[in-house]
Amino acid sequence: MTPKNNIVIGIILALLVVASYNVEVSPVEFVEGLPNLMIVIEEMVAVEPKYIPTALWAMFETIQMAFIGTVIGIAIALPLSLLSARNLNSKFVYAPIRALLAAIRTFPSILWALLFVIMVGSGTFAGVLAITMYTIGFIAKLQYEVIETIDSDPMDAVSSIGVSKVQLISYVVIPESASHLLSQMLYMFDYNIRQTSILGLVGAGGIGFYIINYIKFFEYGKAAIFMLVVLITVLVIDWASVKIRDKYIIKSQHGMEVTTK
């Protein structure tokens, strides 16, 4: 531990205290609030079981929204990623598209949702649009980065045959970047389910809509049931996507690594 390190740690601690004071972070209030959690659990147990099917249905709706948003988002992102890869296009093509994608990414999904609620009214459609925009911004960026790191050897070998650009893309670029794409799709879907769960807070449909309304009317027990459903669903999906990744994606990438030489 050098004196320089001590100074850095000291500064971080000081900033922590100042910032906590400014935003009213209070450990005392946190501890005092803990018994309230017990009250929520008591209320939860008292909730009639007929709400559980409603909660499950709301969760199912959320998953469907996330699914549509992810699929359409990826479908739009892929052509954009091909157009924004520097090894496939001239500056005049990739520069403006990259700028557009960067602009799309500056908005978190909840702000997109707010914008679309204003545009198309509240409901699930606004939520789907928000998830679509978010997916476009991220998948396009992740994918053009993958395309740019494709090995130049297959590109050279095939383009020197004198094939067209469309052929080069469909026979080299896409197959060489596909294994990454699969894992990104899975990750995005997983992530979008979590995001969609909260879009209801701004009126963009999904299970979050129920949660925010129960909270507004102090029905914490019902809200907690719905939150529990989100938690369990996310855990299950997380577990499933790890399984899928292990089984189909890591294996093939591992195979590629072992035999590159």
Binding site: V158, V163, E176
Partner: peptide, 28 residues
């Protein structure tokens, strides 16, 4: 160019596809 076969130093095969698919590329 269609009839000049070029094999670069690392061969330039498409790793995730089959032998047949790689060979067919020559007929594109």
């Amino acid at each position: 160019m269609h009839t000049i076969g070029y094999i670069p130093q690392n061969l330039g095969l498409i790793k995730n596809t089959t032998i047949l698919e790689n060979v067919l590329i020559g007929s594109l």
